[in-house]
C-alpha cells in the first residue's frame, strides 16, 4: 500500500516545501489545479505539468514512487482520451496531460504535507464530523494494513492461493476479507469505548497552523498566482 510510503515522505522530509505552511501548500495546489483545468492550449498544459515535476525533484521526495502513483491517472484518463481521439489527437493528449498534471499536484501536496495537517486545513470548509472521519479512517487504515499483510502471509503458508484455481482463490479471499471485516468491526467498538472515555462528543481537537507567513510561503503563493494569471490571460506575442 503506497499510503504508508507517502506518509513517510511527508513526515520525514526536510525541504523548503516541507517547511512551508500547510495552508500555503493547499492553496498553491488548488491554484495550479485551477490553472490546469482552465488551460486550453497544449503548451500551457505542458508547462503546468513541468512545475509539479520540478517541485517533486526539488523537494527530495521519492520521485520514483510518486511517478509510479501518478501513472494511475494516465490509466484512468486513457478511456476518456480514446473518446477525445475521435475529435482530434490534441484533445486526447490534453485529457492525459491534465489528468497527469492534476495527479502530480495532489501527490506533491501529500508527499510534502502530513495528512493531519491537510485535514486541519480542510476543517475550515468541511463539517467536524467529516474531519473526524478522515482521522479515524487514516488511523484504522494503518492498523488494518498490518493485519492484512499478516493474513495474506498465513493464507499463502496454508496453501490458500493457487495460480490456476480462480474459484478456490475467490472463496479463500472472501473468507480472509470476511475475517478482516470482523477485526475491523471489533476495532471500531474499541475505538468507540476509548473515545467515549476520553470525552469525545463529535469533534477531535486538531491544531491549525496559520502563520506567521515566511518567505517561502510568500514566494510559493506569489508564484502560483502568477502561473494562474499567466494561464488565464490569452497571450498574443
Amino acid at each position: 500500500m503506497h499510503i504508508a510510503a507517502v506518509d513517510h515522505m511527508a513526515n520525514n522530509g526536510d525541504s523548503f516545501l516541507h517547511h512551508a505552511l500547510p495552508f500555503t501548500k493547499v492553496i498553491m495546489s488548488f491554484l495550479f489545479l485551477a490553472a490546469l483545468i482552465f488551460s486550453n492550449q497544449i503548451h500551457k498544459a505542458v508547462f503546468l505539468l513541468v512545475i509539479p515535476v520540478a517541485f517533486i525533484l526539488l523537494s527530495g521526495v521519492n520521485a520514483r514512487e510518486i511517478f509510479h502513483l501518478a501513472l494511475y491517472s494516465i490509466v484512468f484518463s486513457l478511456l476518456f482520451a480514446l473518446i477525445q481521439l475521435q475529435q482530434s489527437w490534441t484533445a486526447a493528449v490534453m485529457v492525459m496531460i491534465k489528468a497527469l498534471g492534476a495527479a502530480l499536484n495532489m501527490l506533491l501536496l501529500i508527499a510534502t504535507t502530513p495528512y493531519t495537517d491537510i485535514f486541519a486545513v480542510f476543517s475550515h470548509v468541511l463539517p467536524g464530523v467529516i474531519i473526524d472521519l478522515f482521522i479515524f479512517t487514516y488511523r484504522s487504515l494503518f492498523i488494518l494494513i498490518d493485519k492484512l499483510e499478516d493474513m495474506v502471509k498465513s493464507v499463502r503458508l496454508r496453501g490458500g492461493l493457487h495460480p490456476m484455481r480462480l474459484l478456490f482463490n475467490l472463496k479463500n479471499a472472501a473468507g480472509a476479507l470476511g475475517v478482516m471485516t470482523i477485526h475491523a468491526f471489533d476495532m471500531s467498538e474499541r475505538l468507540y469505548r476509548i473515545y467515549s472515555l476520553r470525552g469525545y462528543n463529535g469533534k477531535i481537537p486538531i491544531t491549525r497552523e496559520w502563520g506567521p507567513l515566511r518567505w517561502v510561503d510568500i514566494l510559493l503563493l506569489l508564484f502560483s498566482l502568477i502561473v494562474l494569471t499567466g494561464v488565464l490571460i490569452p497571450w498574443k506575442i
Binding site: M1, F136, T137, L141, F185
Partner: peptide, 28 residues
C-alpha cells in the same frame, strides 16, 4: 451527517472510519 446525533455519533463515526479504511484496503 445531520441524522447522526448524540451517543450515536460516538459509535457511528469510528465505525464509518473503519468502513472507509476497509474500502481502501479492498481497493488494493
Amino acid at each position: 451527517t445531520g441524522r447522526i446525533k448524540g451517543d450515536e455519533l460516538r459509535r457511528k463515526i469510528p465505525f464509518a472510519g473503519v468502513i472507509a479504511a476497509l474500502m481502501l484496503i479492498f481497493m488494493s
